[in-house]
Computed example of a mutant assay.
Amino acid sequence: SAEVAEAARRMQVVRFRARFDPRVLARYDIKALIGKGSFSKVVRVEQKATKKPFAIKVMETRMREGREACESELNVLRRVSHCYIVQLMEVFEAQDCVYMVMELATGGELFDRLLAQRSFTEQDAVRILRMVADGIRYLHTLRITHRDLKPENLLYYHPGAESKILITDFGLANSGNKSGDWTMRTLCGTPEYIAPEILLRKPYTSAVDMWALGVITYVLLSGFLPFDDESHTRLYRKILRGKYNYTGEPWPNVSHLAKDFIDKLLMLDASHRMSAGQALDHPWVLTTVEGTSMKNLQRAISRNLRWRASPHSQSPGSAQSSKSRCSHQS
């Protein structure tokens, strides 16, 4: 019942509070647990002085992987300030954990919103992709590669229809190394969004984020993944072949320009892939303006998303892709 759930939630908060650093508790009231990662928990808090809501990401730093994720995230968040990237407010470092106070996104994940909407057109997709590409362009100018772009890491800032999107979760991000070498070698990311050059164990560049943007665009317009298989071995083989298609609903109702946009991102040769700046200048992004007659793709997309997430399809749900992973850091 609702009372039981509420009581359980309160107990959870009490348990958390007991473990929180007193310095944090002096300034923030803990309200609820909103997320859990392998080395982190995210809680919703209220700043005591202003009554403003924030999120605090508590990163456990006892284990090496947790420490590395924490370092990558802090290295990036301390350097960035952009309207489409989650903003770090302050940091408290404790013995075996780090508290990152961040801007709170209350609008939910990209696909949850899509499923709840009545209508979703190419114009809506472009509005989202423009914000994401703008954020990526900013990161790439700073030589930061996100390396784990996927729908789950794109959150709406608030529940309103005109909400902006925030790019979140920089636990796998890379910001170059001391010698000024901007290529990376770590096998990391989320399987369905991994670029072919990462799988080939070649040194790679920030173009891997653009491949991921291509996958996101494909899913956003169809509810299907371009490369999909329960077996990671077979999935990786499909990605390396780079063969995907535009068959089935709603693809017949999707414009040629939209498909061209995807094709220019899902290029096996990373050097031929569009950059974030080129993506923002692509005719689809520039010409898909208010008032163009756009077909409503929502029903087909949500049907496909739901089908992927249902038990009979035996796979981990289209929006619900596998977990991010990273072998040794580079």
Rank of each mutant, 00 (worst) to 15 (best):
175 S>G: 01
177 N>K: 05
178 K>T: 11
180 G>C: 12
181 D>C: 14
182 W>G: 01
184 M>Q: 11
195 A>I: 05
195 A>V: 10
198 I>K: 08
201 R>L: 10
201 R>D: 07
204 Y>K: 11
208 V>C: 13
209 D>V: 11
209 D>P: 08
223 G>K: 07
223 G>P: 08
225 L>Y: 08
227 F>P: 08
229 D>P: 05
235 L>K: 11
235 L>F: 06
235 L>M: 06
236 Y>Q: 08
237 R>Y: 06
238 K>Q: 15
238 K>T: 04
239 I>K: 05
242 G>I: 10
243 K>Y: 09
243 K>P: 00
244 Y>C: 02
244 Y>T: 02
245 N>W: 02
246 Y>A: 00
247 T>M: 06
248 G>N: 04
251 W>K: 01
253 N>C: 08
253 N>T: 04
256 H>G: 02
258 A>D: 02
259 K>P: 01
263 D>C: 06
264 K>R: 15
265 L>M: 15
271 S>N: 12
273 R>F: 09
278 Q>C: 03
282 H>L: 03
283 P>S: 04
283 P>I: 03
285 V>I: 15
288 T>F: 01
290 E>C: 00
291 G>M: 03
293 S>M: 09
295 K>I: 14
296 N>S: 10
296 N>V: 11
298 Q>W: 00
298 Q>E: 10
300 A>Y: 12
301 I>S: 07
302 S>P: 00
304 N>K: 11
304 N>G: 03
307 W>I: 10
309 A>W: 02
315 S>A: 03
315 S>I: 13
316 P>A: 14
317 G>A: 10
317 G>H: 08
